[in-house]
């Protein structure tokens, strides 16, 4: 096993483990912090794949913005948000069985795919060039429409969020 594989397994274990911890955490805020660690693990995996831009964007957007947004949202609530009751359902084994079948199915599907064991040739350097992406984003024959639509999507997000957050506040005041 090469050093790269060891690092990958380690990062993968941390990502998965903190993901599980995020689900299991009794305190809402702990869950949020575990989620951050999990997202950071994903960023490391991007870095291991040498997808530099996605690695830093993962940290910038998911940890710098979304995780902080989640923590702000948690702090909006009045209760301390701790989970006192039992965390399992009487029929938990049913869910576990379903998950197991799903897991085996996905594994089988992947292993049956002939290309899974062959290692593809490394991408040419031009494939990871950001300028290519940038040119394609504003190319009318490329991704111009999705690029502009994403802007409108962001606008819609903001309008929706402000409508729900700010309008309600005024109603309460009346």
């Amino acid at each position: 096993m090469s050093a790269g594989q060891v690092i990958f397994l380690l990062v993968g274990a941390v990502t998965l483990g903190s993901g599980i911890a995020a689900v299991n955490a009794r305190k809402m805020l702990h869950a949020a912090l575990w989620l951050v660690l999990s997202l950071l693990g994903v960023a490391f995996i991007f870095a291991l794949l040498e997808a530099s831009f996605f690695a830093v964007v993962q940290v910038l957007v998911y940890i710098g913005a979304i995780a902080i947004l989640i923590i702000f949202a948690v702090m909006l609530s009045r209760s301390s948000l701790t989970d006192e009751g039992t965390q399992t359902n009487p029929r938990w084994w049913l869910a576990a069985l379903g998950l197991l079948i799903l897991f085996v199915g996905i594994c089988a599907a992947i292993l049956l795919w002939p290309k899974v064991t062959s290692i593809p040739a490394p991408l040419p350097a031009s494939a990871t060039d950001l300028a290519t992406l940038g040119k394609e984003l504003v190319n009318p024959n490329g991704y111009l429409v999705p690029f502009e639509l994403s802007s409108i999507l962001l606008l819609a997000t903001l309008v929706g969020a402000i409508y729900t957050a700010v309008e309600k506040k005024e109603e309460i005041k009346k």
């Binding site: 913005a65 947004l69 702000f72 402000i162």
Partner: peptide
């Protein structure tokens, strides 16, 4: 939360 959301939009 509202500032966080506006920030998120501009970040993306």
């Amino acid at each position: 939360y509202v500032y966080g959301l506006i920030f998120l939009v501009f970040d993306v």
